[in-house]
Simulated scan of single mutants.
Amino acid sequence: MSPHALNTYDGRPGFSCANCAAVIALQDELISKAFQGRDGRGYLTHSATNVRIGSKEDRALMTGVHTVADVFCVGCGDRVGWYYYKASDQSQKYKEGKYLLERERLIKENAWSLDE
């Protein structure tokens, strides 16, 4: 995808890819900052943009086995997190259809704070 085709959201506060600065998610879509990714802290979001979803796989995570797919930035191809398709445990069903974005792979835009 050409950089000119990426959604930019006209400066609204959001997360961008740390490698190429493509917008990945808006601040308004943030659900929780209290998640763990592969490389450290992660953020659960309602949606993501400018991403490509990889192949589904069952993965043993801290909260049990989930069917997930890695999520890649369409600007540069870097992995930025994963998408939750299915949770095996009833208490984890709220994650289905959501994105886990890894803090170490993102930059914040518009000076809003991630450290609360």
Score class of each variant (00 low, 15 high):
1 M>D: 04
2 S>N: 14
3 P>Q: 13
4 H>T: 13
4 H>M: 11
5 A>Q: 10
5 A>C: 03
7 N>Q: 15
7 N>Y: 13
8 T>F: 05
8 T>R: 13
9 Y>E: 08
9 Y>C: 06
10 D>K: 11
10 D>E: 15
10 D>I: 06
10 D>V: 03
11 G>Q: 09
13 P>M: 14
15 F>E: 03
15 F>S: 02
16 S>C: 14
16 S>F: 06
16 S>I: 13
17 C>K: 05
17 C>S: 03
17 C>Q: 09
19 N>H: 08
21 A>K: 12
22 A>G: 00
24 I>D: 07
24 I>C: 06
25 A>S: 14
25 A>P: 00
26 L>K: 06
26 L>I: 06
26 L>F: 02
27 Q>S: 11
28 D>E: 12
29 E>K: 11
29 E>Q: 07
30 L>M: 15
31 I>N: 01
32 S>D: 09
32 S>Y: 12
32 S>I: 00
32 S>R: 11
33 K>S: 12
34 A>F: 05
36 Q>A: 04
37 G>I: 13
37 G>E: 08
38 R>A: 11
39 D>C: 01
39 D>K: 06
39 D>F: 08
40 G>W: 08
41 R>I: 01
42 G>N: 04
44 L>M: 12
45 T>C: 12
46 H>T: 12
48 A>E: 07
48 A>I: 00
49 T>F: 11
50 N>P: 02
51 V>G: 00
51 V>W: 06
52 R>E: 14
52 R>Q: 15
52 R>M: 11
54 G>Y: 05
56 K>S: 05
57 E>Y: 09
59 R>M: 07
61 L>Q: 04
61 L>T: 12
62 M>Q: 10
64 G>W: 15
64 G>Q: 08
65 V>E: 06
65 V>G: 00
66 H>S: 08
66 H>D: 09
67 T>D: 05
67 T>P: 02
67 T>R: 15
68 V>L: 03
68 V>R: 07
70 D>Y: 00
70 D>N: 09
70 D>C: 01
70 D>Q: 05
72 F>I: 00
74 V>M: 06
75 G>I: 02
76 C>T: 05
76 C>D: 13
76 C>W: 05
77 G>I: 07
78 D>H: 07
78 D>I: 10
79 R>K: 15
79 R>D: 01
81 G>C: 06
83 Y>K: 10
85 Y>W: 15
85 Y>F: 14
88 S>R: 14
88 S>T: 15
90 Q>L: 07
90 Q>C: 01
92 Q>I: 01
92 Q>C: 04
92 Q>G: 01
93 K>A: 12
93 K>R: 14
93 K>Q: 10
95 K>H: 04
95 K>Q: 05
96 E>N: 08
96 E>H: 01
97 G>A: 09
97 G>C: 04
98 K>L: 07
98 K>F: 02
98 K>C: 14
98 K>P: 04
98 K>S: 03
99 Y>S: 00
99 Y>T: 00
100 L>H: 03
100 L>E: 06
101 L>M: 06
103 R>I: 05
103 R>A: 13
103 R>C: 02
104 E>P: 01
104 E>Y: 09
105 R>S: 11
106 L>K: 06
107 I>H: 00
108 K>F: 12
109 E>G: 07
110 N>E: 13
111 A>W: 10
111 A>S: 10
112 W>S: 01
113 S>Q: 13
113 S>A: 12
113 S>M: 11
114 L>G: 00
114 L>W: 13
